[in-house]
Design a protein around this nucleic acid. Structure first.
Lengths: 364, 364
DNA sequence: CTGAAAGCGCTAACAC
DNA sequence: GTGTTAGCGCTTTCAG
């Protein structure tokens, strides 16, 4: 067994023990350059005996790359969407020999800027970011001038030329409206989580992230196609916190002509509706119908199951990594806007008013 | 504005522009040593003009620390417990100026070993790991000889002298049994997720992680205290995948004297029960009762809400970071076994058989 | 095929 | 209070 040195053995220790030069030892370990097979053996043996492990920091310094990518999750990744995306990214990166440095910024633009700076300072080879509101993005622009490859996921940022991997939420939401309409629904509620400082309101906030824009447009397009008038629609924008979402749900439900089906723009809003419905003894898929964006384990397991617009989160993450590494390996790829299809998964949370029109919740 | 250099400016560029030496520039930026206030100004200005950002890799190399900690999440962190823990750790680390390098190993011991090696190679200053089965842990021992601070979370590993931060699942499960008993339940099912290669079985697998051990012992202790005999208990061990959990649930439910309440050892198992119950039109909290370990947003939002043994996940993560950084800052701290209390949150998923004994599900 | 030496960007001794 | 210099551990020319 090797003598335990106080600090970890370096390539010099390996070289000495093998009786070769540092350069040779390095070549043997790295398996490059011209080198005799016998020497490789020798060095390998010495390294094994010493328990040598290359210092990746030194290597990164020398080679100018860290084999690390930075992930900036802007939203709270306790959200069922972001944790799956994170896992997909971590797994895909690992499969390609990259590690992931992760940051969470809770939709705070200042934190986002700082997180990006930190990651760039740490010399990550590239960044995957879920950008916050599309208004200010000079920090994203600054990544670009820093020359770091950048891939945006989940949300587009106009004005930034970078590859983005998003989902077709327009079609997804449109399909949701279509589905509810086919089930006989004529009064639609739409509960939309959007950042800001307005609490909750039926007024559309000025700044919206691209996913929300897409969902709104998809909803409107669906309604237009099916002849669903504005008075048949109830909108509610809402900050993503329990207090406001509860109140927003209440407002939606307490109207004179309450909607028979409510679309929620994310899981938190769906949960808010579920909670209030439960408190009021409103049965989902009967007294009130629900469709939400993003599938989850609980949406599938509940009784009735929640009808969802499922987004291909795993591929989204995997493709983001693939595109990022492509750019890292060969800078100068042209920016792509990749849009992945969504899928409507019909479960039991939308009442069938065609077969059972008596379920139409006229008053509550 | 500064002339755009091809590569990022270094401290040398800053020094030149400020007309001082590298060392002075470094001191000014780092704010250490004796240095004139006027010089600091000068250097700061030059740095700002150049858009200088310190190269953290070079700094890490020189200082021998990366201000990065490695997080090895062994289980799938899509699990509601691990994503919250991850967020807590990332946030706590960030607050202390540390970044987090994350790895996910899906309960695979080989992957865990490799992940740890990679992180150590990357020179993380310390590691937080959720260890897999307690059988083999030479890789953990190897962290220790490498001298890297190590904190274990969620699960203990006997044999390893390291600080661990876990929760009091013994008391939690015991409280769950007590609660169900107080509600009039006399037939208890216990559905336990545990890794292995046995599918599902009522036989206890040989190797169990400490959390599972604790939950089993807590369950047994509660039963013993309350005089609940073995024949009133139905056990089912189960690999954590949908196929086996569905079958395990079915077996639990299809017995001649089926349990009136089922304890599930984690969220995945709870979801499996929910799904099967839904399919069979069994109302939760009425036809069948449920208590699970780990709170989640959906458990609270569902109707009825799911009664849970809540674990303080956020503090668990925060304390783990705190202990790890303490050891990093001052090596040689003595290992602690920190056990955080759990809390039973009673919601509506446990039928009250005392008030409404007619709800006792005698046969289905 | 192998060795010598330079240097990635930074900071910490040590001079002055 | 500031400059000079060495060197963290590694890889990569450049010689030989």
């Amino acid at each position: 067994m090797a003598i335990q040195k106080s600090s970890a053995p370096t390539i010099i220790d390996v070289a000495e023990r093998a009786g070769v030069s540092r350069a040779t030892a390095s070549r043997a370990m790295g398996g490059y350059g011209r080198i005799a097979e016998s020497t490789v053996e020798l060095v390998r043996k010495a390294a094994a005996e010493l328990g040598y492990r290359p210092n990746e920091v030194a290597r990164a310094m020398r080679q100018g790359r860290t084999r690390t990518i930075g992930l900036v999750i802007v939203a709270d990744f306790t959200n069922a969407f972001f944790d799956r995306a994170t896992k997909a990214i971590v797994d895909a990166a690992k499969a390609r020999g990259y590690q992931v440095l992760i940051t969470n910024t809770d939709e705070d633009i200042a934190a986002e800027r700082q997180a990006i700076e930190t990651l760039v300072d740490k010399q990550v080879d590239g960044l995957i970011v879920v950008p916050s509101t599309s208004a200010v993005h000079d920090h994203l622009a600054s990544i670009q001038t820093s020359g770091k490859p950048l891939v945006l996921i989940d949300r587009r940022v106009d004005g930034i030329i970078a590859t983005s991997v998003t989902t077709d939420d327009f079609s997804g939401t449109e399909a949701a409206v279509r589905h509810a309409h086919a089930m006989g629904h004529r009064r639609f509620g739409f509960l939309i989580a959007a950042e800001g400082k307005y609490g909750h309101s039926s007024e559309r906030p000025a700044l919206l992230i691209s996913t929300v824009e897409d969902r709104i447009n998809g909803f409107l397009s669906g309604c237009a196609d099916l002849g669903i008038k504005a008075r048949q629609q109830s909108w509610m924008f809402c900050e993503d916190n329990p207090r406001d979402s509860d109140q927003a749900v209440a407002k939606l439900l307490d109207q004179p002509k309450a909607p028979s089906v409510i679309l929620t723009s994310n899981n938190d809003m769906a949960l808010a509706l579920l909670k209030t419905a439960g408190n009021r003894r409103l049965a989902i898929g009967k007294d009130i119908s629900l469709i939400t964006v993003d599938d989850s384990q609980w949406a599938a397991a509940m009784a009735p199951g929640i009808t969802v617009v499922a987004r291909p989160v795993e591929s989204l993450g995997a493709i983001a990594v693939e595109k990022l590494l492509a750019e890292i390996d060969a800078p100068g790829q042209k920016a792509e806007k990749i849009v992945l299809p969504t899928e409507l998964i019909a479960r039991g949370s939308v009442a069938n008013l065609v077969m059972y029109p008596e379920n139409e919740p006229e008053n509550y």
